[in-house]
Nucleic acid binder design. Sequence first.
DNA 1: GTTGGCACTTACCAAATGGTGCATACTGGA
DNA 2: TCCAGTATGCACCATTTGGTAAGTGCCAAC
Lengths: 126, 126
Amino acid sequence: MSEEAQTFTCGLHATLALIGSKWKPLILAFLGQKSRRYGELKRCVRDASDKVLIQHLKELEADGLVKRTDFGEVPPRVEYSLTPFGESLVEALKPLCGWGEDNRKDIEASMVSSRTRKIPFNHTLA
Amino acid sequence: MSEEAQTFTCGLHATLALIGSKWKPLILAFLGQKSRRYGELKRCVRDASDKVLIQHLKELEADGLVKRTDFGEVPPRVEYSLTPFGESLVEALKPLCGWGEDNRKDIEASMVSSRTRKIPFNHTLA
DNA sequence: GTTGGCACTTACCAAATGGTGCATACTGGA
DNA sequence: TCCAGTATGCACCATTTGGTAAGTGCCAAC
């Protein structure tokens, strides 16, 4: 409990512990634009299944990055938004968004050439 | 090539396609400090197995982010370094490192409390 | 009155991802 | 002489992760 407590090798390592899942960075980025209702968010992060999306949202909430507001209305209405903590993270995420925009073409091209593997995200190396 | 070609929903999505794997951001960050030989890098990214580390390095190389230099020497000697492209990405990655440093304590704490679930990356407590 | 959307939940299953251990070819150190 | 370190490859296995499909309760629109 004393020595091996060096949980992370560096700040990045710590950050990744929070947003290292498939859709989390994207979820945060979309919530960074504005608060969104569940269905809306789902349409943004298309491709993510309900199960996973909700699971990630719960974790983000547990980690204090996202706030869930349930309006308790009849046709369910729930809104997700960033907490200040989450917002600070999204700020740090922006350069990556920008980098991606700037290099989108190259990335897509390289994605096509190395077609044999990953397409969506990290996996699919089959 | 016309419609469904909208590969990524946003820049971030594109970026994640390149560095969405478990150790890639870390590998890049460490290489961002200096070029490193394989063994050295492995010690930095501890916890990653050879298989995975090498696999990730190959992908990063294929994606033009990392350069591999084999000195063809007798006791194998290979050095990994960032390409300019890789360096630009590392730049965009730095805010996340910083954010992680700044919030390390909070993150570790939250990691402990939400003990019941994943410890995304390394383990420390299994 | 059937369909459809909302915000989920659950059970089950597949794939992605990562890990272990063994092997290589050679050299320098104990 | 025997072992360790170097940078990988490979086969096989385990776990983690994510996806599918179906269901829930309630209301509005068709």
